[in-house]
Design a protein around this nucleic acid. Structure first.
Ligand SMILES: NC(=O)c1ccc[n+]([C@@H]2O[C@H](COP(=O)([O-])OP(=O)(O)OC[C@H]3O[C@@H](n4cnc5c(N)ncnc54)[C@H](O)[C@@H]3O)[C@@H](O)[C@H]2O)c1
Ligand SMILES: NC(=O)c1ccc[n+]([C@@H]2O[C@H](COP(=O)([O-])OP(=O)(O)OC[C@H]3O[C@@H](n4cnc5c(N)ncnc54)[C@H](O)[C@@H]3O)[C@@H](O)[C@H]2O)c1
Lengths: 213, 213
DNA sequence: CCATCTTTGTGCACGCGTTCACAAAGGCAT
DNA sequence: ATGCCTTTGTGAACGCGTGCACAAAGATGG
């Protein structure tokens, strides 16, 4: 029976082995003292706890540059996600195949969500349409949203939103870049715990929506 | 003179006003007691500290579905980023215009980086090519990398990497989704501080690279 | 069956970030 | 000029996650 110790896993993941063991203990994971964790059993347990054993239907709304790229991305299926539908407001796109699947019109959004039991929606529309699309998704039964539009969505309690803002990613890199360049000249300036490393999210989270676009 | 109080900003950003004030104090930001912060001055100070007043040339390597979408994205320019070049290994793509800019071949990668003084690179190649591309970028002088390929890049000290893994974003949503569904049946199960909200990144950070794809 | 060795599971302490709370500062009206 | 009101800037307390350290558990070999 192939096993791994918390020490090995921790080294591979670059974390503390005690933290790893403590985390596993929350899952009720059973290791064997003196031996370690049964790899197969562990993978299964984590997969189940993370929801990877289920098949999650998702819809992508806004099939433009980004939406089409997402639709073509094969990396979702391998993690248990199935693109159930592609939805766009442009009548010219309706019926047009993208990634081997016909684009459907927003008129049918509610029906699509319900028929497929979709609870996760991806928004890749322009910023101006995002809040409205979000509200329709939520009203139709979606309770988790991945938002690519540069807008802060407001949603009722019980709905999760994660925002992917690529500009902010670049900004964070630029920030550190500037620091690297500057520290030669101005030794120790200000800014102690500002903008740490890469913990990415909070309910809203890190980067306050204070800056203009 | 238009001003904002820390209280107003905090409410808008959904954070604690004291934290916001303390953060501003690190920037040496000067507010006026009894009044608040001068909006214009504040925006300028934060922009400068964040490096938004500079023009950052970036290159995108791997002009496929995702790379092309990024190249077409207008949201970067407005934050001070300029796409200096699009680079792809496919000879058939060389010279072909994407987003009004000719795609250049990877053969010229080093020269492009140096000529344009690029310090930030975006990797949108298949996972298999990412590490190799990364090494060439770093060797040519790039010190910050935004990685979209589902691979953990290893880089020398002094080089920053941020990874955007869309599958993990969906997984986190699915995880909470499962929790929502499950808490009706099994009241309070396990898992206390597992998978928090949306702090997204650490040097490597949140999600240990333990799970198989 | 006992001794020994390895590795888990976890109580506890440390450290850090967040939040509270308030004195000081500045504006503004009288 | 004086007093009042608002809001900043920050010292200090709190809370939480992380890491340490160890007792208990189980395997393994004699
Ligand atoms: N392209 C990128 O790399 C990138 C990067 C970061 C963020 N974004 C953001 O992602 C979003 C999409 O970007 P894009 O480049 O794909 O834009 P795009 O203009 O190419 O595509 C937008 C699509 O949304 C559709 N649409 C508009 N209103 C809609 C509605 N109400 N309902 C349904 N569909 C609607 C349009 O018909 C279009 O097909 C934008 O908000 C953009 O800021 C894009
Ligand atoms: N498309 C998405 O929405 C999406 C989402 C998440 C992650 N990703 C990841 O982003 C990467 C790109 O995805 P895609 O859908 O654009 O793939 P793609 O196959 O459409 O594009 C990849 C491009 O990279 C080029 N390329 C290959 N090897 C190269 C090299 N050594 N140097 C330079 N260019 C090279 C190819 O010629 C191609 O144009 C993949 O790693 C994918 O897993 C994509």
């Amino acid at each position: 029976m192939p096993t791994v110790s918390s020490e090995e896993l921790a080294a591979a993941a670059g974390v503390n082995s005690a933290k790893l063991r403590k985390d596993f203990s929350y899952l009720g994971s059973y290791g064997t003292r003196g031996v370690g964790y049964d790899v197969e059993y562990l993978v299964y347990q984590i997969s189940r706890e993370l929801g990877l054993t289920q098949d999650w239907p998702v819809v992508i709304v806004g099939i433009g540059n980004l939406g089409a790229a997402l639709a073509n991305y094969g990396g979702f299926a391998s993690r248990g996600f199935r693109v159930a539908a592609l939805i766009d407001a442009d009548p010219a796109m309706a019926g047009k195949p993208v990634a081997g699947m016909p684009v459907q019109h927003t008129d049918d959004l509610e029906k699509i969500i319900e028929d497929n039991g979709v609870s996760i929606g991806v928004i890749a529309t322009p910023a101006g349409a995002a809040q409205q699309v979000c509200e329709r998704l939520v009203a139709a039964g979606v309770t988790s949203i991945l938002n690519f539009a540069p807008t802060v969505l407001s949603v009722p309690d019980g709905v999760d939103v994660r925002k992917v803002d690529l500009s902010i990613e670049l900004q964070i890199l630029a920030f550190h870049e500037q620091r690297k360049a500057g520290e030669d000249l101005a030794a120790d300036d200000v800014v102690p715990p500002v903008a740490a490393k890469q913990p990415r999210k909070g309910p809203d989270g890190d980067v306050p929506a204070v800056m203009p676009a």
